[in-house]
Design a binder for these strands. Structure first.
Lengths: 195, 195
DNA sequence: CGCCGAGTTGAACTGAATCAAGAAACGTGG
DNA sequence: CCACGTTTCTTGATTCAGTTCAACTCGGCG
């Protein structure tokens, strides 16, 4: 099997820190997993397409953005050991309003929509996957909403910096700027002020 | 049964617009529903408490806010025919970082955390409830994130106004201001400019 | 009747946008 | 491996939306 040439170790650690899931269930999970690999700056999902996957990021950095506006807007980053999906598109199986792209070379372990539905039927405990995806994505969005409401740009930048000091160096400033909600110029000035 | 004195009609319409759910399943659903009623300005959930419910708003307007900061911040409104929960607290069963309060007299139909877990076991289709809650809440948050990122205060106000012209009149301006992310003074000026 | 919170209005200030131009880094082809 | 062009980042000057502080109005309620 293709899967066995690569390790799903990180994936398993992520989902089963408390070892609730039997070996048998794991075998089924893993049999449905698809390994996807991308170089840097590769498009994972175009806006207008329907998201077909919930993916675990084994390696790499990914960004979500809205293109075609006068200037595109990056509104999310996903890092190693996190779940990733254009979740609203995935849930409703409707066209995504945003696009997804790699920033660095990326390896994903993905469930398709169909295989996840199958899993829900076959292996009740696989609900943890759907639930954890929802939890992770929802909690992140809540945190972000609050950050956008009651922090200013500099505070937001310092926060990201505190959480991901080194990863940040791999992300172009203009993406970070639009994520923070300011222009690249403004972010450049903030950076100078800090150092 | 207490439930039968009141009508769960709106609730049923909301969940079953395509009549997928059998009468039998509905009976089980309804048997687990708890009716909760509040006057205006009543506290539904204090920050620090664990959210025990996913609720359907039959009647009323509710706000979510973060208290105890120098000035509290309202970050969400929920209206009639929508689902409502301090969902991150509910999912993880951890203390909520925010509080929930009624703005107008309110009637909720609520599932407890426990009864929802039971339902998942007994009635497979009840997953639609969890999924629809997640969908609704997630999609709302996504829309809001984008609004906070690429609209200014005036655009955000006009949007709410377009979506909920009359409901808005029932919500104190200061709540709307903090929801939009500006001061009441600034919102007052925006209003004048518009009319 | 007077108080109090909510909303309005004004003036000074500030953080970030915009416009513009230069410096540094990056990739591609010769 | 260098030279070139393109993109990214920095810096400056100006403008603007929204904050802050302060005073005043209005409506509801004791």
């Amino acid at each position: 099997m293709a899967e066995q040439e690569f390790t799903t170790e990180k994936f398993q650690k992520y989902f089963d820190h408390s070892s609730l899931i039997s070996d048998k269930a794991w075998d089924i999970f893993v049999s449905k997993l698809i390994r996807r690999e991308y170089p840097k700056n590769a498009t994972i999902l175009k806006n207008g397409q329907v998201e077909n996957f919930i993916s675990f990021v084994d390696t790499g950095i990914i960004r979500f953005f809205i293109p075609n506006e006068e200037q595109e807007m990056t509104f999310a980053f996903v890092f190693e050991n996190e779940l990733m999906s254009a979740y609203d598109s995935f849930l409703m199986q409707t066209a995504s309003t945003y696009a997804v792209q790699t920033i660095t070379p990326t390896v994903l372990w993905s469930f398709t929509h169909k295989s996840l539905q199958d899993l829900y039927q076959e292996v009740p405990i696989s609900n943890v996957i759907g639930r954890m995806a929802c939890e992770e994505l929802y909690i992140k969005k809540t945190a972000r909403e609050l950050s956008l409401l009651n922090q200013n740009a500099q505070e937001r930048y310092l926060n990201i910096f505190a959480e991901r000091p080194m990863l940040l160096q791999q992300i172009p400033l203009k993406y970070i700027a639009s994520y923070i909600g300011i222009t690249p110029q403004a972010l450049s000035r903030i950076r100078r002020r800090i150092s």
